[in-house]
């Protein structure tokens, strides 16, 4: 490519986060380019989920800056943008506007149990984007088709298997057309035989859309196929990053090697 280098869509600039006395993130910085598919791997408790939750504004940060599309996530200009360039903590309205760019899929699906599949998907577009029911349903049916669940549009979540629920949750997040999608171990709550159907949907998504995706996973084989770049985390720090081939075949760092060995010993495919 010889076009001018694009700006990162996510800039994380030395953020720190503690829960009580326990510091999860200590000055973490990283960038994500538009359309990039990123896999975050690492041992339990290394802060992977926390990073996604911070990006989704489900947790706050103690210090540092995050810019999405060049715009501050947790801060906004003083006096509504007056000259001095000072920043103040983001208002709820600012967060609301920033969240339009980001969607998240949770480990435990978090579907709305009192709403049918199609209503789960159409609710947010109708409420937050002013879509008409007809528009929202047309889009929802396209998405249901894409995740292979068109025949379950009128079902209630409780009638679905875990894999089906997760595919609905993916469709629900996509319905808002976010630029960035966050996936937190979306298959780890599923029975093994249901994992593949969800991974297939994600593969398709990675191929067919230019949405930026951050994926936390313990499925190393999937991370290998899915990601453009793999980040190995330990204790809130990026220990090693690189193309999946490099990380999985030739990990440089001892901690990465140890982690991958353990994961393989635990029966995960690489």
């Amino acid at each position: 490519m010889n076009a001018p280098a694009p700006e990162p869509i996510i800039e994380i600039d030395s953020i720190s986060k503690s829960f009580g006395d326990f510091q999860v993130l200590d000055g973490l910085s990283m960038n994500v380019m538009p359309g990039e598919k990123l896999a975050l791997i690492g041992p339990s408790g290394s802060g992977k989920t926390t990073i996604l939750r911070i990006l989704m504004t489900l947790e706050s940060i103690d210090s540092g800056h995050i810019r999405i599309d060049g715009e501050e996530l947790y801060h906004m200009p003083k006096n509504g943008g007056a000259k001095d360039g000072g920043l103040v903590p983001a208002s709820e309205a600012h967060l609301h506007r920033m969240r339009q760019k980001i969607g998240m899929v949770f480990q435990l699906f978090n579907l709305f149990p009192h709403k049918s599949v199609i209503d789960n998907i159409t609710l947010a577009p109708m409420l937050t984007k002013g879509a008409s029911r007809a528009e929202a349903e047309t889009r929802a049916m396209e998405l249901l088709d894409m995740v292979g669940m068109a025949d379950k549009a009128r079902a209630m979540p409780a009638q679905l298997s875990g894999g089906q629920k997760q595919r609905i949750a993916i469709a629900r997040a996509l319905a808002l057309s976010p630029k960035i999608m966050l996936f937190d171990e979306v298959t780890s709550a599923l029975d093994p035989e249901l994992v593949e159907e969800v991974l297939n949907v994600m593969r398709k998504l990675a191929q067919e859309t230019d949405t930026t995706m951050l994926l936390v996973t313990h499925e190393m084989g999937f991370a290998h196929d899915f990601a453009d770049r793999v980040l190995f985390f330990d204790a809130g720090k990026i220990v090693e990053e690189g193309a999946p081939e490099d990380i999985f075949s030739n990990p440089r760092e001892e901690r990465t090697q140890g982690f991958l060995k353990k994961i393989i010993a635990a029966g995960h495919r690489v």
Binding site: L58, R99, F106, N110, F112, H114, L127, R172
Partner: peptide
């Protein structure tokens, strides 16, 4: 908490969250 978090991820306002998700359940 999961229901609240899903609402944040879908960018619902506090009012919409209460009205459409929390109170009906």
């Amino acid at each position: 908490k999961a229901q609240y978090e899903a609402c944040v991820a879908l960018n619902l306002t506090r009012y919409q969250r209460m009205r459409h998700i929390i109170l009906p359940q």
